[in-house]
Design a protein around this nucleic acid. Structure first.
Lengths: 344, 344
DNA sequence: ATTTTTAATGTAAACCTTTACATTTGTGTA
DNA sequence: TACACAAATGTAAAGGTTTACATTAAAAAT
C-alpha cells in the first residue's frame, strides 16, 4: 500500500481534467461545469486527496496562524482567556499558535519575528511589553497586533483591558463602606502596569473618603499564594499596627493572607476583611468564600480576537465594537470574606 | 520605506552571489568560502532578510508544528502539562499548535487531518480518544502520535500516563491505615478511563484489607467543585450512613466535599477525612490543607514531548516502539485533611 | 606544461498550490 | 454561413526555498 500522499495533480489525472479545474472545483465551484465538478469529487474521494496547506499558504502568502504571546502558559489564569481566543479564531478559520515567552525579551523577539517570516498572520499580546521588532516598526503601518490584559502606555495598537483603576476603587470603597479605615493593599510586582493601576484605584478610593495614604500598608507581592502568605504575616503580625481590611491584587494572594490570618487566630471577616481580585473558581469555594473582583477572562479573550479579526478584515464572530481601547466590565462579587469594621 | 519583504533573491543580488550560495551560507556554512559567507552576512543585514518559513517548509515537507489536542483549553488542569510540552518542543525547534476539541469527535477529526495536510508534523493527544482518521490508519505505519494523560485501551501508540490504579490504591490505603472502614469514593464521569482505573484502585485497596465494597459509597462526579459539593451533601447528610473518610478523584471535588462537610458542622479531619487527587496549587492553601495524590503534570508533558521527539528522530517510520506505556510516578502528599478514624 | 583532483559556485528542478491569461468549445445572432 | 460572445477548460507562471547536478576555478600531481 505505502502510497504517496495524493496531490492535486493525482486528482486531476484521475478525473481527466487539468489541475486548474480541480482547484477551481474546490474554491470556485460556480465557474466549473456540473460534470467536471462531479468527476473531481469522485477523484478526490478515490485518491483521498487533502490539499497541502503549506503549498496553499505559500501561494496565498498567508499562514492562517494567529500567534498568541503568553508570559507563562503554565499559569491557569490564562486558560479562560485562551479559550475565548481559540474559539473565535477557529470560527474564523484561524489556528492559534501559542508562544510561551517566560517573560524573556529574547523569546518575545523571536516570536515576533514570526510575523515577518510569514509563520503567523497576526499576533495577540497577553504580556504588557511590546517585542523589540514591533517597537521599531514604522509608525505608518500598524502591524496586525492586538494587546490584551495589560495596556501598554503610549502604544496605539488596539487594546482590550479591564479598568483596573476603577475596579480597585470599587473594591476599596466596598471596604470603606463597611467602616474600615486601616485598609492594606497587597499589590503585584512593581514593574507591572496592573500593579500601578490597581494601586492608583486603591489610593483614589481612600482619598475619596478622606483617608490618608499610609505607605506601610502597601505590601508588594507577586500574585502568588506564597507571596500572599508572606504579606499576611508582615501586615497582620503586630496587633497594634494591624489593618482591619486587606485588598489583594489577586485571589491567590487573598488566600495567602487568609492562611496567615488564621495562623494568628484571626477570624475572617469578624477580625479582618479580605478582598481578592480575579474571581478564580476556587474563590467561591474557599473558607470563607472570598469577596473579589470578577475578571471576565473569557470575554477578554473573545474581545481580543474580535479586535484582531476586525483588523484582519475577517468577519468577527462576536459582537462588534467601537474605536479606542475596549474595556470589558468587571464586577465586585461580594461573599463572606468581608464585613463591618470591628469596634475599638 | 514601505519596501517589500526581502527574499533570498534580494540577498543574492545584494551580495553578488547566487541564491544557492546564500542558502548554503545559512544552512551549510562549511561548504561556502569565507569571503562569500561574509558577503552574504552583510547582504542579510542590509536587506533585513528573514527566511520565508512557509516556502522553506514546503520545500522540506515539514511544518515544524506539533499539534496538541486538548479537550478543553479553558481547564487549568492542562496548563502545567502544556508548559512542559511547550518547553521541550521549542527546545527542539518545534512550535506547539493547540487544538481545543471540546470533546467533539468532529473537531478531533478535523485536527487530526492536519497531519495529512502537512499542517503538523506530529500530534499529542491529551484526551483519551483516538480521532477517527487515526483509528482507520494502516497498522503497519504508526503515525507520529503520542498519547498522554489518558491511556487508550488496545492502542499501541506511545503513551505516557500515571498509574491511576496504584495511586488510588495508595491513597485509599492511607485511609485504612488510619483505621477508617467506611470510605466513600467520589469518582469522575463514568465514560472516562481515569474513573475506571481510580475506582479499581480504590476497590483493590478496600479488598486488600478485607473491607467489603459498598456501591452506595461511590458517588459519580465530574471533577468539578460543584459536583464535589453535591457529592458531599449526598454522602454526608445522613449521620447513620455517613462515611468517616472520602477519597475524591480530584482536588476540586475534595474541596467541594469539604464545603459540604462544613455545612453539616463536620470537622475535617476529626469527623471526616478527605483525600483529593492532582495536588493543584490551591490544595496546600485550603483550610485544612488537603491530603492528595500529586500528579506531576509538568513531568507528564515533558515525557510526552520526549516520547514524540524520539519518534520523530527515529527516521525509520516502520520501526516499532519499545514496550508499554511510560508511567510517571505519583506521590501521596499527606496534609491535614486526613486523620484517625473517630471512635464510636 | 599538462592532467587530475578538489573546492566553490551557479543553474535549474522540485515542493504543491492558485490564478491570470490563452485557448477551446458551444450558443445565439446577424 | 459566418461571427460575436459566453462559458469552460487548459497552460504556465509565480510564490520562496533547498539541493542534485553541472560548471568553473584553483590547487595538486604527474
Amino acid at each position: 500500500m505505502n502510497e504517496k500522499i495524493a496531490t492535486i495533480e493525482d486528482v486531476a489525472r484521475h478525473a481527466g481534467v487539468s489541475i486548474a479545474t480541480v482547484s477551481r472545483a474546490l474554491h470556485k465551484p460556480d465557474v466549473v461545469s456540473e460534470t467536471a465538478r462531479e468527476k473531481v469529487q469522485t477523484a478526490i474521494a478515490a485518491t483521498g486527496y487533502t490539499a497541502n496547506v503549506m503549498a496553499r499558504n505559500l501561494r496565498l502568502n498567508r499562514s492562517g496562524m494567529i500567534l498568541l504571546l503568553v508570559p507563562d502558559i503554565g499559569n491557569p489564569f490564562f486558560s479562560a482567556i485562551l479559550s475565548g481566543i481559540e474559539k473565535g479564531a477557529s470560527q474564523a478559520g484561524y489556528n492559534v499558535l501559542i508562544g510561551d515567552t517566560q517573560n524573556d525579551p529574547d523569546r518575545e523577539a523571536t516570536y515576533a519575528a514570526y510575523l515577518r517570516s510569514n509563520q503567523a498572520d497576526a499576533m495577540i499580546l497577553l504580556n504588557g511589553r511590546l517585542p523589540a521588532p514591533l517597537a521599531n516598526a514604522p509608525a505608518n503601518a500598524t502591524p496586525p497586533v492586538v494587546i490584551a490584559c495589560e495596556r501598554i502606555p503610549g502604544c496605539a495598537l488596539p487594546t482590550v483591558i479591564i479598568d483596573n483603576d476603577e475596579a480597585s476603587f470599587i473594591a476599596t470603597r466596598h471596604l470603606t463602606d463597611f467602616g474600615h479605615t486601616r485598609i492594606a493593599h497587597v499589590s503585584g510586582p512593581s514593574n507591572n502596569i496592573l500593579t500601578t493601576d490597581r494601586v492608583a484605584g486603591y489610593r483614589r478610593a481612600l482619598a475619596s473618603v478622606g483617608i490618608q495614604n499610609d505607605p506601610a500598608l502597601i505590601y508588594r507581592g507577586d500574585f502568588s499564594i506564597d507571596s500572599g502568605i508572606a504579606a499576611g504575616r508582615a501586615l497582620l503580625a503586630d496587633p497594634k499596627t494591624r489593618p482591619t481590611a486587606v485588598f489583594c491584587a489577586s485571589d491567590g494572594m487573598a488566600i495567602g493572607v487568609i492562611v496567615a490570618a488564621k495562623e494568628y487566630g484571626l477570624r475572617i471577616p469578624q477580625d479582618v476583611s479580605i478582598v481578592g481580585f480575579d474571581d478564580i473558581p476556587h474563590a467561591a469555594a474557599y473558607d470563607p468564600p472570598i469577596t473579589t473582583v470578577r475578571q471576565p477572562r473569557r470575554r477578554l479573550g473573545e474581545q481580543a480576537i474580535t479586535l484582531l479579526l476586525d483588523r484582519l478584515g475577517a468577519k468577527a464572530p462576536f459582537e462588534n465594537r467601537e474605536k479606542g481601547p475596549v474595556i470589558v466590565p468587571t464586577e465586585l462579587i461580594i461573599r463572606q470574606s468581608t464585613g463591618p469594621c470591628p469596634k475599638g
